[in-house]
Design a protein around this nucleic acid. Structure first.
Lengths: 356, 356
DNA sequence: TTGCTTTCCGAAACCGCTTTCGGTTAGCGT
DNA sequence: ACGCTAACCGAAAGCGGTTTCGGAAAGCAA
């Protein structure tokens, strides 16, 4: 266990060979005799030799590293899935012993600068980005730079790059259908600004499901709010203040749904009885909310693994458009969905009307 | 926006200068005339030149990168604070535009191998590790390798290295004192295996606080369980099954505390009324638990920033033992702590005795 | 013995950048 | 006109690896 790292040169001197020979022996070239190959390898791990990666990567012209750009929004309740995603990514990369670089940009310009610097300076051989917005400038930049990348999420024009996404439209159709089957004819949607494609997708799902069930979409029931628990709470309050409030709410995310639950409870109403709520993300924490949150669940670690595998394949030369994967979310019933309570709702409505 | 990165060589050719001159101009050497310096800089960002980092770092002999080893335990509810910690770390490093490498080890041996490889191969100039165990082999390894590092947490023998920690002993003294002041004379401790130093520290705090209040520590009231919400639930069930169950519980973490709440509720008891619970971590999520979780809070992003700053300072040559920082946790009262309910507790106890 | 493959290793160029060391030119005083 | 010091830049040697190329030694057939 020495302090100074042992270089190829001193390993070679130790073996009385040249650096070139030692390098080829270590890398399994055929023109090295088996006996010296073994001799070299043994000496290598006796001395604890590890090839300097900066030198190696410079020489082979491959950074053997990919970057992950952390999402910038939704920092109120820290993104709980980032850890799982990173774990999956790490797993995929470690199969080839590539490195994972994570970057936390502060602003949009900052983010663009980071990307440009990372790829131009040869620090990364590929990038994974999250939560694209419509016509995302990062995607254009990466395409211009001809840098391999995969997107966690997708945009409307997503035919010429690689992405992994959960079908938000399908998920919200499932969620709305579920509430309709429970008797809810007035279900609202709580979302975030539509610049984010996933917000748009899920709203689309909501809309088509409402119509497919023979109902009409009421714009009053569509609330766009801040992507946070507070946003969800405020939006829910506005919905419940309506003359004809909804009996069911589908939320863009579990985080927002938690805010919705808080708003409902604060009025003395009971989530899952008086008002049904369905979230999206499948956070484990939802088990412990009050009451446990029904949600559309998706496996985050799997997403990380797939994103890593896809990126590696693309770097190897695969056509990005061949790597587009759409996962379905599963309805995870816990306790915030329930059948329409006709009597209760009537009482509430009349109460509300008396108050106002 | 070209595809192939522009190297120093072609930039030099473009300017009709040598690479050495261009390099010195870009790096602000004094022996370059102001006019050529400007000329070079302008051409550089016209062509979008970015120094190849592998080459640069090889040349200057500094990886300008630090590694973060993700914690391996507590994966049941994915570590929610990892994202915040990474954010803080990233902030500190970006001030010097260093890179952050994250590693997700699978086993303990795997972890040791990762460390050894990362430092020997010159990939990182420093490392931050979390949650040390007693006599942590990673610390010994890093010391042997003479690799700068900081520890998030500390061990008993923590005088010769750098660490940032929250005073778990103090926190649990505060928590127990708080419960005592509410009238609870039987408060239990739910912890994790004591190989983890933080588990030991917090237990110590519990013990000393119990004694300082003139109470006697009852070993029955000390439950060591799995570091997860399920572990907390199981442990709580065992505590409540005791002939003389506790009326207060302090939990090693918020995650375990959530399990405790579940166990309490499942018996028809009311957390914060029948049994008080105090967690540890201050997770934002706790606002939405049932009921909102009282906890010992600590700022995670700040921890990341401090860890980053400390590591950088040590790499610069600072004495590691000069960088030891102990933060205090703050009692964050929400709804799971309350005064002792004498009548209720009696009823419960007798009920329980009837059942058994 | 000669000639011709193989087998195995040494020599050297290169990856892209940093940095030291000299040498050329310009500017100044005298 | 001469010498001398600054100011500026070119040349070249690394950093620690990889990879191509060529040549020496060894093996075999004739």
């Amino acid at each position: 266990m020495s302090a100074k790292p042992v270089s190829l040169k001193i390993l070679a001197a130790h073996l009385d060979l040249t650096v070139g020979t030692v390098s080829r022996a270590l890398n399994g070239y055929a023109d090295i005799s088996p006996v010296t190959r073994e001799r070299v390898k043994r000496a290598a791990d006796e001395l604890g030799y590890r090839a300097n990666q900066n030198a190696r990567r410079l020489s082979i012209g491959n950074p053997e590293t990919v970057g992950y750009l952390m999402p910038r929004i939704g920092s109120s309740i820290a993104q709980p899935f980032v850890a799982q995603l990173l774990q999956g990514l790490g797993e995929a990369l470690s199969k080839r012993s590539w490195d994972l670089l994570v970057v936390q940009p502060n602003s949009s310009k900052d983010e663009m600068g980071h990307i440009e610097r990372m790829v131009r300076s040869g620090r990364v051989g590929g990038l994974v980005i999250s939560r694209p917005i419509k016509n995302d400038p990062r995607i254009r930049l990466l395409q211009d730079l001809k840098c391999p990348f995969v997107v966690h999420g997708r945009t409307a024009t997503s035919d010429d790059y690689a992405w992994y996404d959960v079908d938000g439209e399908d998920a919200f159709i499932t969620a709305v259908n579920h509430l309709v089957s429970l008797g809810h004819s007035r279900t609202a949607f709580i979302g975030a600004p539509l610049q984010y494609q996933f917000a748009q997708d899920r709203l689309n799902g909501y809309r088509t499901a409402i119509q497919a069930n023979g109902l009409t979409v009421d714009d009053e029931l569509i609330q766009i709010a801040d992507f946070s628990d507070d946003g969800g709470e405020i939006a829910t309050n506005m919905l419940l203040d309506l003359p004809n409030p909804p009996t069911g709410i589908v939320c863009l995310s579990d985080t927002m749904a938690l805010g919705a639950l808080a708003a409902i409870r604060s009025r003395g109403l009971q989530p899952g009885v008086d008002v049904s709520v369905i979230g999206y993300d499948g956070l484990k924490f939802g088990i412990h909310s009050n009451p446990p949150l029904t949600t559309m669940a998706q496996p985050q670690a799997h997403a990380g693994r797939r994103l890593g595998d896809m990126l590696l394949a693309i770097i190897d030369g695969d056509d990005p458009s061949k790597h587009q994967e759409l996962q379905r979310a599963q309805l995870l019933r816990r306790k915030t969905d329930g059948p329409l309570q006709t009597a209760t709702v009537q009482t509430n409505v009349s109460n509300r009307e008396e108050i106002q």
